[in-house]
Write a protein that binds this DNA or RNA. Structure first.
Length: 914
RNA sequence: GGGUGAUUAGCUCAGCUGGUUAGAGCACCGCCCUUACAAGGCGGGGGUCGUAAGUUCGAAUCUUUCAUCACCCA
């Protein structure tokens, strides 16, 4: 092993070793464990969120593989329709081209090229993180097999009437010129205005004032609506009003749903351009007038004056016109929510178009039941509520998109718009007996990306073929994903899984948080706070990092701000921390599903931990290389501390397993960290040096044994370093297993707990800690050896002192320990007392008596406060009567403890006054 | 408007089936380059657990109020 731990040098070769030895593919074993990777979008590169998710999955996968299960991690990528097409269109735009210049086939060819590039980057990044996915089974949502499955599902659902074509109001993205689903729309709160517009009433002198936030949709109005109980307007119901800027007369209707307190209590109804109005329009049989072209400009249904103007540009013009006509009343400030397209960032317009829909209600029911009946469990459980809430109120899903990249809808139309659904044109002609002279045209639209994603857990396993993999690995064991796609993806997979395989797609859904930057902000390209996980692994200079962050900025004006912020946060760029440190960090941050603020300071600590493990291993190998390791531990032959470490190690295995099955990765990481650093390194390794000096050869066996188990426990989290250290373990002949990732996970030994061991070890630690503290308090130089005079009448204590004599001497830099039953006078000494034991330390140096006294007085106060708290409790009659006896007893013990502490501090103080 | 979660040390977070002297890592202070490790060792300081009330012998933990923040749905 190298003297220095440098992750960069070892990680590449280790991954290759695993690949060469075919470690990632599933072995045919009895019990199965499988996870499908949430397929990353082929829109570019992986971000921190992916790295986090992949780490969690890899931990579960490696752990279960070591448990001896037949494990499949199914990887793949998603074509991500709109998102990917946008990326490629943006690239075209840089060359001054649009998709229309190169046509449908040309664009799709371009996107496939992009997909190759991006897909490969994603795979190599995923590998770099250490993911042990079965790459031989890598899938893409637009692979032939998966595409066939998509068609089959569409056709089946169409034939069952679940998928239908309808003319409905949908969310229309005028920039992308496609329909999008409700989920792809985000509502942004904005300060806007409420405009009051006056309408003349037909055959009347009266004026009706309507309040609206969207005056520009006026051309599509087909009614005015008031509340039937509104006394102000009762007389106007069923009369007609003149629609400004047009010649049309529209009806005044009434409906209970109108809020009398909103605006004037009088609202305009635009059934073809507003979701609420759409419902009212249906209910009251109103006319639906579409006023928009697909690109968001006004069509022929508005007057010539406004035709061709973009709806978002038209408001001012219309208001001016209304004002000139004297029809514009007051304008109030008003907070509104504006629907924005998630991908395009454009304002979304409701538009009446022909689209394909999926009926959801019947599909949702079994998906709800599956979670209610605990066939699927959410971890953490509170996400169930969100899941139920959405499914309980589910609306039909608009599945067609007017873009080019994706699964083309397997439907054909003849010239009379009759619909034929099937796998291909030939099949349809044959089935419906349509001869060649009737022209059939395939629907131009493609399916929503999430349609194919919803099938991912079974299409990747070969469905609709009943493959061995499908039988073996479906349902998968757990889904690891973020809460942001519970509706988009998770719920739909559950519905489709139950529908087509009659079984839920996974038994557990582990929901993790989002990775944010160190200030808790969402990492986003436009803010310029993105960190590439690979840059943390391999390191990056400040210049390259800055360059990455400011290239292709959406808002170039932020450039200087981003440059400055990056320089402030990473003055020297990012060091190469290695994949293991990053993984351990993610593991330690993987608590109960809350968001993660990612701070490089944290990862540095875990890199140091890896370094610690590295050096501890080096120590073990250096001290044992001449030793004949025996695989089994002869427990009875061990020293007390050796027994202690073996018991602790066993506890660690138990704890680890518990945390892993309850998805508490943070606790798992913490228990490993503290055992290895604070128990194994700080105590056991130090003590082993003493033992080895004393010719206790067997302690080497314990060193190696413990390290072996530590490596196994650590491996799922930090696979590279552990594999490398294991390599040495194997070449030294300490194990026959050549590859750690294939080794068997340690089983619990269930060694009997022995109280005497605990007592002796805690006494040893207390003894050492106290003297260390005293040394430090008295400012005794670490190199100076001291003598200890110990006085105790207790046999056990005397035995303890002689048993642990060399450990104490070594760890405390003690020359000689004098043991005696009775105390005697020694000049110039400090007293330290433990239970049933008094220790004198002759002071050879002068000490700063004043500071020391102050310190002792302070701790005295602290102790007295604590004691008085306990005493107050014990003097409380109610406490004695009502509290359980063990609590009372423990308080008595505490009382005793504090009294003793106080006495000992008092002793020390007296010593100092002499 | 409805919902969910959060608020604990300077920072990031554990702890919440009520009983610990309220923990960890990082940061900070002191001593030490001791033969695995200065990416280290040893020691130390630092928190009235967001606010106000309630239940209880006992509340960071349970109930309620308010405040602030974040997210989701409409």
């Amino acid at each position: 092993m190298d003297i220095k731990y440098s992750p960069k040098n070892l990680e590449a070769s280790i991954y290759k070793k695993w690949m060469d030895n075919n470690c990632f593919s599933a072995k045919d074993l009895k019990s199965n464990y499988s996870i499908v990777l949430p397929p990353p979008n082929v829109t570019g590169t992986l971000h921190m969120g992916h790295a986090f998710q992949h780490t969690i999955i890899d931990i579960l996968i490696r752990y279960n593989r070591m448990l001896g299960k037949s494990v499949l991690w199914q990887p793949g990528t998603d074509h991500a329709g709109i998102a990917t097409q946008l990326v490629v269109e943006n690239n075209l735009a840089r060359e001054g081209k649009t998709r229309h210049d190169i046509g449908r086939k040309g664009l799709i060819d371009e996107i496939w090229k992009w997909k190759e590039k991006s897909g490969n980057t994603i795979i190599s990044q995923t590998k770099r993180i250490g993911s042990s996915a079965d790459w031989s089974r890598n899938r893409f949502t637009m692979d032939d097999g998966l595409s066939d499955a998509v068609k089959k599902v569409f056709i089946t659902l169409y034939n069952e009437g679940v998928i239908y074509r309808g003319n409905r109001l949908i969310n229309w993205d005028i920039k992308l010129q496609t329909a999008i689903s409700d989920l792809e729309v985000t509502n942004v709160e904005k300060i806007g205005y409420l405009y009051h517009i006056n309408y003349e009433i037909k055959d009347s002198e009266e004026i009706l004032t309507v309040a609206t936030t969207r005056p520009e949709t006026l051309f599509g109005d087909t009614a005015i609506c008031v509340n039937p109980n509104d006394e102000r307007y009762k007389n106007l119901i069923n009369k007609k009003a003149k629609l400004p800027l047009t010649d049309r007369l529209i009806k005044i209707i009434s409906d209970d749903s109108i809020d009398m307190d909103f605006g004037t209590g009088c609202v305009k109804i635009t059934p073809a351009h507003d979701f609420n109005d759409y419902k009212l329009g249906k209910k009251h049989n109103l006319e639906f007038i579409n006023i928009l072209n697909k690109d968001g400009t006004f069509n022929n249904n508005v007057g010539d004056k406004f035709k061709g103007i973009g709806i978002h540009e038209s408001r001012e013009l219309i208001l001016t016109e209304l004002k000139n006509m004297g029809l514009l009343g007051k304008i109030e400030d008003y907070k509104t929510t504006i629907p924005m397209g998630e991908r395009s960032g454009e304002i979304i317009e409701p538009l009446l178009t022909d689209q394909w829909f999926m009926k959801m209600e019947d599909l949702a029911k079994p998906a709800i039941d599956a979670v209610k009946n605990s066939n699927i469990k959410f971890v953490p459980k509170n996400w169930e509520k969100i899941y139920f809430n959405w499914l309980d109120n589910i609306e039909d899903w608009c599945i067609s998109r007017q873009i080019w990249w994706g699964h083309r809808i397997p439907a054909w139309f003849d010239k009379d718009d009759n619909i034929y659904v099937g796998n291909d044109e030939d099949e349809i002609r044959e089935k419906y007996k349509i001869n060649q002279d009737i022209e059939l045209i395939q629907d131009n639209d493609v399916l929503d990306t999430w349609f194919s994603s919803a099938l991912w857990p079974f299409t990747t396993l070969g469905w609709p073929e009943n493959t061995e993999e499908l039988k073996k690995y479906y349902p998968t064991s757990v889904l690891v994903t973020g809460f942001d796609i519970i509706f988009f993806w998770v719920a739909r997979m559950v519905m489709m899984g139950i529908k087509f395989l009659d079984k839920v797609p996974f038994k557990t859904i582990y929901i993790h948080g989002l990775v944010r930057d160190s200030e808790g902000k969402k990492m986003s390209k436009s803010v310029g706070n993105v960190i590439d996980p690979i840059d943390i692994i391999d390191g990056i200079g400040l210049d390259s990092l800055t360059e990455k962050r400011i290239s292709n900025l959406v808002q170039p004006k932020l450039k200087n701000k981003i440059i400055k912020k990056t320089k402030d946060e990473f003055p020297d760029g990012i060091q190469p921390y290695g994949a293991d440190a990053l993984r351990f960090c993610f593991c330690a941050l993987g608590s109960t599903g809350r968001d993660i603020s990612f701070d490089l300071k944290r990862i540095e600590g875990y890199r140091n931990f890896c370094n610690k493990l590295w050096n501890a291993s080096r120590f073990v190998y250096m001290t044992t290389n001449d030793y004949n390791y025996e695989d089994k531990i002869k427990f009875d032959d061990l020293t007390t501390y050796e027994k202690f470490i073996i018991i602790k190690l066993d506890d660690l295995v138990t704890e680890y397993k518990k945390h892993c099955t309850s998805y508490r990765f943070d606790l798992m990481a913490n228990s490993l960290y503290s055992f290895i650093w604070n128990e194994y390194c700080d105590w056991f390794v130090e003590i082993s040096k003493v033992e080895i000096d004393n010719k206790n050869e067997y302690t080497k066996n314990v060193l190696i044994y413990t390290l072996q188990i530590i490596l196994k426990l650590c491996h799922p989290i930090i696979p590279y370093i552990t594999e490398e250290i294991w390599n040495e373990m194997n070449s030294l002949g300490y194990t026959k297993d050549q590859i750690l990732m294939n080794a068997k996970f340690p089983s619990q030994q269930k060694i009997f707990k022995d109280d005497a061991i605990d007592i002796e070890v805690s006494l040893l630690k207390e003894f050492i800690n106290k003297i260390r503290k005293t040394r430090s308090d008295l400012n005794v130089h670490p190199k100076i050896k001291i003598d200890l005079y110990c006085f105790s009448k207790h046999d056990l204590i005397q035995k303890f002192l002689s048993n642990n004599n060399s450990i104490i001497c070594s760890l405390l830099k003690v020359e000689t320990i004098y043991i005696n039953e009775d105390s005697f006078d020694i000049d110039e000494c400090i007293t330290v007392s433990l239970e049933n034991l008094k220790i004198y330390i002759p002071i050879k140096n002068t000490i700063d008596i004043k500071t020391e006294k102050e310190r002792l007085l302070k701790s005295m106060i602290n102790l007295k406060v604590n004691l008085s708290k306990i005493e107050a409790k014990l003097n409380n009659k109610n406490f004695i009567e009502k509290a359980p006896s063990e609590i009372i007893q423990s308080n008595f013990n505490k009382q005793k403890f504090f009294e003793k502490e106080i006495a000992s501090v008092k002793d020390l103080l007296e010593c100092l006054s002499d």
